[in-house]
Design a protein around this nucleic acid. Structure first.
Length: 583
RNA sequence: GCGCUGAUAGUGUAGCGGUUAUCACUAGGCGUUGCCAACGCCUAAACUCGGGUUCGAAUCCCGAUCAGCGCACCA
């Protein structure tokens, strides 16, 4: 049994995660998070909010998970996200239909499915495996389709990424941020992809959670004001060059940008923030690297892209975050599709003065004369230069015919206008996090087993920032005299918002093990000394050491321990193992 | 989607034509136990689903679903 099996088994058994719909036979690619898993996931998302919403000042929004067709026409998901497939009627093998005719047609992408099938038939393309006949070409789109309202009139799709919700809200977000760059919006939510073959538990799901930030920046300046704060952090960079050698290179962010390994400061800054976030939730730096996309795997519009990859038991290196410079691709695509300009007006430091010719056709005279053509004539006149206008007669082309216009019908003047700025399309830096994969990674990287007094012990060494249970209250014995004060302690901690579990079942050692297995950082025992001297014992998950302290101080001390503001051995009087005391 | 392998209590498993469906752990109760998976007694809990073969199917056959692995896919 490898760790992967142990962790998935523990996840099922102790209430972290399991395949969904088990009661009805299940469906591949869907998972439930149980009581502990849902809390772990929520706390990881909350830590993400701490980093990106609170510390970076990004705006969190919530857009629908269903989108209308236009969005995905613009984003490319409707065309690019679907593949034409064909199958062999003999051996049932499935192929990309367009790939099979690459040698016949130069640009098979441009063909419809019917056309591809026609090419296959006319050229007698057969199954490359067995030579059998190929079936008709059908579309497999990775988006879930649905109807909006009755009557099949409006086609909707479940979003394949949360990003589009930020792009299409660009105009409102821009107003919200008072028309200036840079600004950013984030979304944490479900996305849906109808994967052909979901595998590996929570790693490849059909419904999954993303946390994405879209950071809109001025393309002319990709430095970052806070880059100094991260420039000395050192990390494993697995750049394109390093991948040639097969060995990641450890260096600081300052060096990575200086040597041109990361495209610019802003991208590097968010890679650094991603790195800090991952460490904060408990990803092991030894099993983490940032891999740069190779030029051939990078989306054609992306300027640079770095994936955070983690090493997982049994699964190998898995991508959990992508940080990309998507340039102006998305905003331009939506502007073209929606016919709405998605730009920011950027003010110049100094207004630029420029001479401009203003042509004023006399529409009162031109209108009756040209009727329906009048507008075309006026437009042609406005486009003319001074040279064209200052002669005795003016000739314009209307529908290919030269038409003479009397100069008295056209006035013009040269004015000096001040240009105070220009409309620019921002570039977008996108850190995109796969939350489900991060949740599993935190479990994998937190898991370890050791042997205590000849007995095995499994531990999830969760950071107290993300642990689903903060503290377990354990009466030493399940007796009324101990249960009553334990319940009082329980209520006291709960009223302070601490996540507390209460367990009286089985021996104290068994209960410690149970809590180790789900990663509870601290256990508090209530014993007979609590009754006599008013003390309680805190037991530390990682060292298994214990301290005794006055029960009055418990809440404050626990809060400090959980926040990382106090060392465990300073929390009270260290307890020597009881067995030793007896002797 | 294709191929191979598999599916039995909460978990891990035994059984491979006729069993009261095995065992361990876990869980619940009682007793005992004074700080790291102690012990005793008791209790609860399963053959993935649908067809077929057979007097009789957890067991054999077919199909579906799910899972693992390989192929393909992964904008």
């Amino acid at each position: 049994m490898d760790n992967y099996e142990k962790i998935t088994e523990l996840g099922r058994r102790r209430g972290f995660m399991w395949p969904a719909f088990e009661l009805y036979g299940g469906a591949a690619g869907f998972y439930d998070y149980g009581p502990l898993g849902a809390t772990l996931k929520r706390r990881i998302e909350d830590t993400w909010r701490q980093f990106f919403v609170i510390q970076e000042g990004f705006a969190e929004i919530e857009a629908p998970t269903i989108g209308v067709e236009g969005i995905f026409q613009a984003s490319g998901h409707l065309s690019g996200f679907s593949d034409p497939l064909t199958g062999c009627k003999e051996c049932k093998e499935v192929y990309r239909a367009d790939h099979l005719i690459k040698h016949i047609i130069e640009v098979p992408d441009a063909l419809s499915n019917e056309e591809i099938y026609k090419v296959i038939q006319e050229n007698e393309v057969a199954c490359p495996e067995c030579g059998g006949e190929l079936s008709e070409v059908y579309e497999f789109n990775l988006m879930f389709k649905t109807m909006i309202g009755p009557g099949n009139k409006t086609q909707g799709y479940l979003r394949p990424e949360t990003a589009q919700g930020m792009f299409i809200n660009f105009p409102r977000l821009l107003r919200y941020f008072r028309d200036s760059l840079p600004f950013a919006a984030v979304q944490i939510g479900k996305s849906y992809r109808n994967e052909i073959s979901p595998r590996q538990g929570v790693i490849r799901l059909r419904e999954f959670t993303q946390a994405e930030a879209e950071i809109f920046i001025d393309p002319r300046d990709k430095t970052h004001p806070k880059f100094d704060q991260v420039k000395d952090i050192s990390m494993k960079f697995y750049s394109q060059a390093a991948q040639e050698k097969g060995e990641p290179e450890e260096m600081t962010f300052g060096e990575a940008v200086g040597r041109g390994i990361v495209a610019h400061q802003t991208l590097a800054y968010y890679v650094a923030r991603t790195y800090q976030f991952l460490l904060a939730v408990g990803v092991s730096p030894e099993r983490l690297r940032f891999r740069q996309h190779k030029s051939d795997e990078m989306a054609h519009y992306a300027a640079d892209c770095w994936d955070a990859e983690v090493l997982l038991d049994h699964l190998g290196w898995i991508e959990i975050v992508g940080v990309a410079d998507r340039t102006d691709y998305d905003l331009k695509a939506h502007a073209a599709q929606s016919k709405v300009s998605l730009t920011v007006f950027v003010h110049y430091d100094q207004p630029v003065k420029r001479k401009k010719l203003v042509v004023k056709p006399d529409m009162k005279a031109l209108g009756p004369r040209f009727k329906g053509q009048a507008k075309t004539v006026a437009e042609a006149l406005k486009a003319m230069s001074v040279e064209d206008l200052k002669g005795d007669k003016i000739i314009v082309q209307v529908g290919g015919e030269p038409v003479e216009i009397d100069p008295s019908l056209v006035s013009y003047e040269t004015v000096v206008e001040e240009i105070r700025g220009e409309e620019i399309v921002p570039h977008v830096i996108e850190p995109s996090f796969g939350i489900d994969r991060i949740v599993y990674t935190v479990m994998d990287h937190s898991f370890y087993e050791d042997v205590v007094d000849g007995e095995p012990r499994s531990v999830l060494k969760f950071n107290s920032k993300v642990a689903p249970v903060d503290v377990a209250i354990l009466p030493l014995m399940d007796r009324d005299v101990l249960v009553k004060p334990s319940k009082a302690v329980l209520d006291g901690l709960r009223s302070r918002g601490i996540r507390v579990d209460y367990d009286t079942s089985g021996s104290i050692g068994r209960r410690y093990r149970r809590n180790d297995e789900v990663g509870t950082p601290y256990c508090v025992t209530i014993d007979y000394e609590t009754l006599e001297q008013g003390t309680v014992t805190i037991r530390d998950r990682d060292s298994m050491k214990q301290v005794k302290l006055d029960a009055q101080r418990l809440i404050g001390v626990l809060e400090e321990l959980l926040a990382g503001d106090r060392k465990f051995l300073d929390a009270g009087v260290p307890v020597v193992a009881l067995a030793a005391k007896e002797q």
